[in-house]
Amino acid sequence: MGLAGAGHQSRRRRRRARPRAGPRGAYRARSVIGTPRVHYRCTDSTNQRAREIAARGAPHGTVVTADQQSAGRGRQGRTWSAPPGSAVLMSLIVRNLGQSPALLPLVAAVALCEAAESVAEVRCEIKWPNDVWVDRRKLAGILVEGRFAEGWAVVGIGLNVSSRVEEFPPELRSSATSLLAATGAELGNEDVLSALLESLERRLSTRPDELLDAWRARDALYGERVSWNGGEGTATGIDDSGALIVDSDSGDRVTLDAGEVHLAPD
């Protein structure tokens, strides 16, 4: 997909605390998260742009942002749709993955929840594996890609900020939300992005056990009837690798480390 808009590297500087040395197993930061920044008015996919520059050696903490994506991607090959300028669309390059690259989606989800709650009066939950919900509607999505064997990953995030319900595609109006739709608060993308980068910087240095506790406290599926390609059952949380645990209707305890899970119909 060709590039639809020219990008530039932001010279804006944010004052933030120096990152602390993370404990064993954390993602140790060598530079401030969010710098350097490459911004596009429009691009096909921030994850694609970030992957390209990561492969060329872009440093840990580099972030790619866009006002609009023409081919934004979610999990399972789905597209991410948002009206131009209405969402935070960003991809963060993370290096020094340590022993726990599988926990990166959990890092992003917890950071997203905390950032959203810091700028708006919302209560966020996490729908395994990579969605953030407000009132059972999708506020944000996460897509983690990369070359883990080479020590880097890209954390892609789409967070609806100012979309109105009527601006969502008809098929999403009953299942999607934004900070504006949920609270009526009119927020700027840059303010939300700043809160998100600060939250990511903090959570990238969180010990795995603390991260898992924070994620479990927001688990939207715990105790719920769920279905997946292969069965139905009751979700009972996640294990220490981030996999979903389900007590299936057949009596077996099933561990799901990938795939789509939905709330089972009543």
Rank of each mutant, 00 (worst) to 15 (best):
T234C: 07
T234R: 13
T234L: 09
T234W: 01
T234F: 00
T234D: 02
A235S: 11
A235H: 02
A235C: 07
A235G: 02
A235L: 04
A235V: 03
A235P: 00
T236F: 00
T236V: 08
T236K: 02
T236H: 00
T236M: 05
T236P: 00
G237M: 05
G237N: 05
G237K: 04
G237D: 03
G237W: 01
I238A: 03
I238L: 03
I238C: 07
I238V: 15
D239A: 06
D239Y: 07
D239P: 02
D239K: 06
D240L: 05
D240A: 08
D240T: 09
D240M: 01
S241W: 02
S241Y: 03
S241V: 08
S241G: 09
G242S: 09
G242Q: 06
G242F: 04
G242K: 05
G242E: 06
G242D: 06
G242N: 07
A243Y: 05
A243L: 05
A243F: 04
L244M: 12
L244R: 07
L244A: 10
L244K: 07
L244I: 10
I245V: 15
I245G: 03
I245A: 10
V246N: 03
V246H: 04
V246R: 00
V246C: 03
D247G: 08
D247T: 10
D247Q: 15
S248L: 08
S248T: 14
S248G: 15
D249T: 11
D249G: 15
D249C: 10
D249F: 07
D249L: 14
D249H: 11
D249R: 14
S250V: 12
S250C: 13
S250E: 15
S250L: 14
S250I: 08
S250M: 10
S250G: 15
G251D: 10
G251A: 13
G251P: 11
G251T: 13
G251C: 13
G251S: 12
D252Y: 01
D252V: 03
D252Q: 10
D252A: 14
R253H: 05
R253A: 06
R253V: 13
R253S: 11
R253P: 00
V254P: 01
V254Q: 03
V254D: 01
V254T: 06
T255F: 01
T255R: 15
T255Y: 01
T255M: 09
L256P: 00
L256S: 02
L256V: 03
L256Y: 03
L256E: 01
D257W: 13
D257P: 00
D257T: 09
D257S: 15
D257N: 13
A258F: 05
A258R: 12
A258Y: 02
G259D: 12
G259S: 10
G259Y: 08
G259L: 07
G259H: 09
G259I: 06
G259T: 08
E260K: 11
E260I: 10
E260D: 14
E260T: 14
E260Q: 14
E260P: 02
V261S: 12
V261M: 13
V261W: 13
V261K: 12
V261E: 10
V261D: 10
H262Y: 11
H262P: 00
H262K: 12
H262Q: 11
L263C: 06
L263F: 15
L263V: 11
L263R: 15
L263I: 14
